[in-house]
Design a protein around this nucleic acid. Structure first.
Length: 646
RNA sequence: GCCAACGUAGCUCAGGGGUAGAGCACUUCCUUGGUAAGGAAGAGGUCAUGGGUUCAAUUCCCAUCGUUGGCUCCA
């Protein structure tokens, strides 16, 4: 007998070799049906795998991440089998479960491609196999035998995978006529997979290296119930409605023009108004935190970026240098503001008493992003960073870093971004040539970030290889409407550029010392931040930010005069309002104002004109009743105060 | 940059080898209305751009540009 400990700490005895499924069955037969995987001493196992020693276990149902992973991983195998049937000669690379569904990377037979028209065929084949209720059977195989199996099959991809594995740990899973090298875990059998959707198709370089052959990546998702698939697809439709590219056009915030160029956003008046309010908000905050504004030009001598190292790292793939009539003179569109700010620091000598110095600039930069990467406002070729560079003494570094975190967190709080992740981006120790500076400086910078993040109690993920080439970063990531993660705020510790630019200050010992730099951008870029803000709010911006706070809707043209008088009054109260003077019925004016996401509709007709009031209707909520213009302005002021409360 | 798909009116989209169509938006007229679409008429397109095939191309083929979903990249 073995002792099984459940998550609630209760302990029960079972026969040696009992499976997760049998344990579930002993609790309830429904649980046994719904158990997709089981954690055994922290490792996730098949529910059909026998347990031979005392263990802590947790049974995972669909709701659990561990169950979905097994479900979707099994589905990837199912799809692989279907693909093998439909495209004989197809070769398989890897097929993991992902956050929503799974994919499989495949090498298509010569001359064959998968297109969207083929999705239905694949789905049908998968469902057909799933209905056969084929068990996923786990087998161990010695390395030599595994290699032999794939040599026979002529599959160089799997052979590559196996050659990297340790002998004795190699397992295979078989369902129906399909066997795949796999660690597992998997479902007991294929019958749980009831709904299947192939989502998309994409190219993916083998092993993620663009020098390698490009494989075909097929994305899919499956569910244990048809209704769950429908719900999921509805959810995707809803998310599409929040897409900033769609709302940006509908709400007249920004546009692009082929003639201006790809990835170069044009801010329309309403978008510009929104962005300027955000900038003012941050400027005010930064003034409180002791930042000083600076302004630098859009171009700089190439040498400046040679010094900083940016040119060596990014020059070849960037906008090419601008030549002048002078022989040999070259300028770059600035891809970064830091070199300019370093030169400002150098414009006069500094005492240790002056530090920290904090230079802030909404600096517009240009980077030649790859054409395939451009995406709405989130990935563009010309954008404005809410940039600042802090020059401080080593003993001030931590405090300064903590204060920057405070700024970022305050912004996120005011704008109601609760669902962010903080990522500590460190360098990849395996590729030291990607970075500049000494190991010692890197170690100092990395520990500074880790300490500061810990002190603030941030829940962070550590990612190696994500650092900037001159220093590690603390990044704040937020997801967009379709689930993609974007970096917004970033804080970076840099010991290297101060050396490269030979920045110094005089210490109390009358000796020259090197300052430490912090690069920081709490929004990241205005473009990306506004994009994510649009998706986060679905276009319903906070009152303090929104371009149009109120719209006056006269019941008929007879009341346009009163509406104009009212508009002037509201302007005096600093309320951003417009009038819909068109010859349309009130229902239509309301509908369109709702779609324009204007927070307040002020309906004025005979009654209001007579007693000098407005009927207030709140967007997506409805009638608030009659108010005097004074009361309304007070209402707005109260709302804004609430929004900006610390 | 790479893989796949797409590009028709301001927007959303239909169509298809014989010089184009709907709804919304726009203009004009009628209507002057009370909380999510009043009615009528009109105007609007070199069917992304450039080549090729054809008696004839918006439609078929190629290239370029752009857009979309991924991959690689992201100072």
């Amino acid at each position: 007998m073995i002792k099984i400990t459940f998550p609630d700490k209760s302990i029960r005895e079972f026969q040696d070799g009992v499976t997760g499924q049998e344990i579930a069955q002993s609790l309830s037969s429904q649980l046994a049906r719904e158990a997709f995987s089981v954690s055994v001493n922290g490792d996730v196992w098949d529910v059909t795998r026998p347990i031979f020693s005392d263990a802590n276990i947790a049974i995972h149902k669909w709701e659990d991440k561990e169950a979905k992973e097994a479900f979707w991983h099994s589905s990837a195998h199912l799809m692989a089998e279907a693909l093998e049937v439909i495209y004989p000669g197809i070769k398989l690379w890897v097929g993991p479960a992902i956050e929503t569904g799974f994919y499989y990377d495949v090498d298509m037979p010569e001359g064959k491609v998968i297109s969207e028209n083929d999705f239905e065929t694949i789905e049908k084949k998968m469902l057909e196999i799933a209905r056969g209720k084929h068990a996923y059977i786990r087998t161990d195989m010695p390395k030599a035998e595994a290699l032999e199996y794939y040599t026979e099959k002529g599959d160089e991809y799997k052979m590559d995978l196996i050659s990297g594995l340790q002998d004795g740990t190699i397992t295979f899973y078989t369902q129906n006529n399909f066997t795949d090298l796999c660690r597992g875990p998997h479902l007991p059998d294929t019958s749980a997979i009831k709904a299947v959707k192939i989502m998309s198709i994409a190219g993916a370089y083998w092993k993620g290296d663009d020098k390698n052959k490009q494989l075909t990546r097929v994305y899919g998702i499956t569910f244990p119930k048809q209704s769950m698939l429908s719900d999921y697809l509805t959810l995707l439709e809803e998310a599409k409605k929040r897409d900033h590219r769609k709302l940006g056009r509908e709400l007249e915030l920004f546009t692009f023009s082929q003639k201006v160029g790809a990835g170069l956003p044009l801010w329309l008046p309403k978008g510009a108004m929104l962005r300027e309010r955000l900038e003012q908000f941050l400027k005010k905050l930064q003034t409180r935190y002791g930042y000083e504004p600076v302004i630098t030009p859009h171009i700089g001598q190439k040498e400046l970026y040679v010094t900083s190292g940016h040119f060596a790292k990014y020059g070849a793939d960037s906008f090419q240098p601008i030549n002048t009539p002078a022989e040999g003179e070259q300028f770059l569109l600035k891809p970064m503001n830091c070199p300019h700010h370093c030169e400002i620091y150098k414009s006069k000598p500094h005492s240790y008493r002056d530090l920290p110095i904090r230079y802030a600039e909404f600096g517009t930069v240009y980077r030649y992003e790859q054409s395939g990467e451009l995406h709405g406002l989130t990935r563009v070729r010309g954008f404005t960073q809410d940039d600042a560079h802090l020059f401080c003494r080593p003993d001030q570094l931590k405090e300064e870093f903590l204060k920057v975190i405070d700024i970022v967190l305050y912004i996120f709080k005011v704008l109601d971004f609760n669902d962010y992740t903080s990522q500590i981006s460190l360098r990849d120790p395996n590729t030291p040539d990607k970075y500049i500076g000494s190991d010692e400086n890197w170690a100092k910078a990395e520990s500074a970030i880790i300490e500061a993040a810990t002190e603030k109690g941030l829940k962070t993920v550590v990612k190696y290889g994500e650092a900037a080439f001159y220093g590690p970063k603390l990044d704040f990531m937020v997801k967009d409407a379709i689930g993609r993660s974007w970096q917004l705020g970033t804080i970076q510790v840099d010991y290297n550029l101060p050396e490269r630019f030979d920045l110094t200050y005089t210490g109390s010992d009358d000796q020259k010392h090197r300052p430490v730099m912090i690069h920081r951008a709490p929004f990241g870029s205005m473009e990306r931040f506004v994009a994510v803000l649009i998706e986060h709010t679905a276009g319903k911006f906070p009152l303090w930010l929104t371009p149009e706070q109120a719209i006056i809707l006269p019941i008929s043209e007879k009341f346009n005069e009163y509406a104009k008088k009212l508009l002037q009054l509201l302007k005096n109260y600093d309320i951003r309002a417009v009038i819909d003077e068109r010859n349309e019925k009130i229902g239509k004016k309301i509908r369109e104002s709702e779609l324009r996401r204007i927070p307040y509709m002020l309906i004025v007709g005979e009654n209001e004109a007579n007693d000098e009031t407005v009927s207030v209707r709140k967007q997506s909520e409805g009638d608030l009743g009659k108010m005097s213009p004074e009361e309304f302005s007070q209402h707005i002021k109260n709302q804004i105060e609430k929004e900006l409360q610390e």
